[in-house]
């Protein structure tokens, strides 16, 4: 059975349509990431599932049951926020135990202790148990905040950009750890973020959200390699997909100033928006010249910014390829790596 189902859920705040006819299902053990920029409606979505917001319309089911009339506490979901909400003067142990001591839970003291130890072990914070929360680093605080969510053994985790306020290195480590943890707990996760790398690397499926509407929901591979629209394409990948206005003639796709860029199918539109990923641009084998404007070394690869046919094009090539600023190269893109959108479908 699906852990969560939304059918046509909408929510408006004054003039802002925060959620616009949102429908999706979250599988029993699925890790679903909602990706979108600030203001896309991600947090409203989580708050609606948690019961902190009431949708204007639509149906929301948890474990197959309509929860419209259920208070947040009755929904058995755990929400983890971006700013780790802990009791600063309480110890880590007390913070972890707190959700289990709520009236109505009636857990035996031994059970509470057992769960606290279990969570501390999973999150590798056992040595911090007696320390007051205010003495912890950001990364440690977020581990404890997640610990507070898992001790309850909820049916569903709702994660609101839990890694955003952490240092990049910690973010990268916790990404891996939390993904593995979710698998071990066999509990479904609805995770929202604005970070495309986080979405791609963690998700079973990614939902791309914009202005309260889901633009595409699919596996990371499909969303990345076959984005449904230029708007989706632009949100994924670092650097993002090249999107260039081109014209087609017998020879192929022509860049704004007429240089040839790639082969085109004969039934393709005359004018189009051409999309191709930086890693699919080669720096040789092409029919026209481009100028290297910028080279950024990123370790395993280098990102090269090209001025090509009147357009700015990003290429990502292995770091052993010799390339320098002001050099002239003849870039090429294989036709199979090109996505074509009619110009009329261009969205802001």
């Amino acid at each position: 059975m699906n852990a969560l189902e939304l059918h046509g859920v909408s929510k408006r705040f004054g003039a802002v349509q925060a959620l616009n006819d949102v429908s999706f299902e979250l599988g029993a053990r699925e890790f679903l990431v909602v990706l979108g920029p600030t203001g896309a409606g991600k947090t409203t979505l989580l708050r609606t599932v948690a019961g902190l917001e009431t949708p204007d319309s639509g149906v929301l089911r948890l474990g197959g049951v309509d929860v419209a009339q259920r208070a947040p506490a009755e929904r058995d979901v755990a929400l983890v926020f971006q700013n780790f909400s802990l009791y600063p003067s309480k110890t880590v142990r007390e913070n972890l135990a707190f959700p289990l001591l709520a009236p109505g839970r009636r857990l035996a003291a031994a059970e509470v202790e057992e769960r606290v130890r279990w969570a501390a072990q999973l999150l590798r914070i056992e040595r911090l148990l007696e320390r007051p929360a205010r003495q912890l680093s950001g990364g440690e605080m977020q581990r404890v905040a997640i610990g507070r969510a898992i001790v309850r053994r909820p049916r569903l985790f709702l994660m609101d950009e839990p890694l955003t306020n952490l240092d990049a290195k910690l973010r990268e480590e916790l990404r891996v750890e939390l993904r593995e943890l979710a698998r071990r707990l066999e509990t479904p996760v609805l995770w929202v973020t604005h970070d495309a790398a986080e979405a791609l690397s963690m998700a079973d499926r990614v939902a791309v959200l914009s202005h309260g509407r889901i633009l595409q929901l699919d596996t990371p591979r499909t969303v990345y390699l076959r984005p449904a629209s230029p708007l989706v394409a632009r949100q994924l990948g670092s650097p993002p997909m090249n999107l260039i206005e081109v014209r087609r003639d017998e020879a192929g796709w022509r860049l704004p100033n007429g240089e040839l860029c790639a082969a085109a199918a004969s039934d393709a539109p005359r004018e189009a928006l051409l999309g191709f990923r930086p890693e699919h641009v080669r720096l040789d084998g092409g029919a026209s010249e481009a100028l290297v404007e910028l080279v950024e070394h990123l370790g395993p690869q280098q990102v090269v910014v090209l001025r090509w046919g009147g357009a700015s094009v990003h290429a990502a090539v292995p770091s052993n390829v010799e390339v320098a600023v002001h050099q002239r190269v003849r870039p090429s893109v294989a036709a199979e790596h090109c996505l074509v959108w009619r110009r009329t479908t261009i969205q802001p």
């Binding site: 593995e180 963690m202 890693e279 395993p300």
Partner: peptide
């Protein structure tokens, strides 16, 4: 570095895959 490690049928080390993180280009 990860780019100097190759998955192979056999190799100097063997182990179990715990996570396959799709990054887009790799």
């Amino acid at each position: 570095r990860p780019e100097y490690v190759r998955l192979a049928a056999s190799g100097v080390l063997t182990g179990r895959v715990v996570l396959d993180a799709f990054m887009g280009s790799h």
